[in-house]
């Protein structure tokens, strides 16, 4: 299953500075599991929120073939 992953802000460090990669997974998995595979601790304060196909979702939602997963760091201020 192919999922394109966009990392926002300083999270690009998990992709060695690249903001976008296409990841292949053998099985279906939840966003939480995908986040862990990337190397981000889902419980850490660095993680902000996740969005699939341009819409914020909860982290335990399953991913589907062709989904675009966006992972945001915590943002403060406005």
């Amino acid at each position: 299953m192919k999922v394109s992953v966009l990392l926002k802000g300083y999270l690009v460090k998990y992709f060695e500075g690249e903001s976008k990669r296409v990841l292949c997974f053998d099985e279906e998995l939840t966003i939480r599991e995908a986040v862990k595979v990337i190397g981000i601790d889902p419980e850490s304060k660095s993680l902000g929120f996740v969005a699939v196909n341009g819409m914020r979702v909860m982290i335990d939602e399953p991913l589907k073939e062709g989904d675009q997963l966006k992972i945001y760091p915590r943002i403060s201020g406005g």
């Binding site: 902000g48 929120f49 996740v50 914020r56 909860m58 982290i59 945001y72 915590r74 943002i75 403060s76 201020g77 406005g78």
Partner: peptide, 9 residues
């Protein structure tokens, strides 16, 4: 609160 409700979930 958007910082907690939206950006931090």
């Amino acid at each position: 609160p958007a910082a907690e409700e939206v950006y931090a979930a």
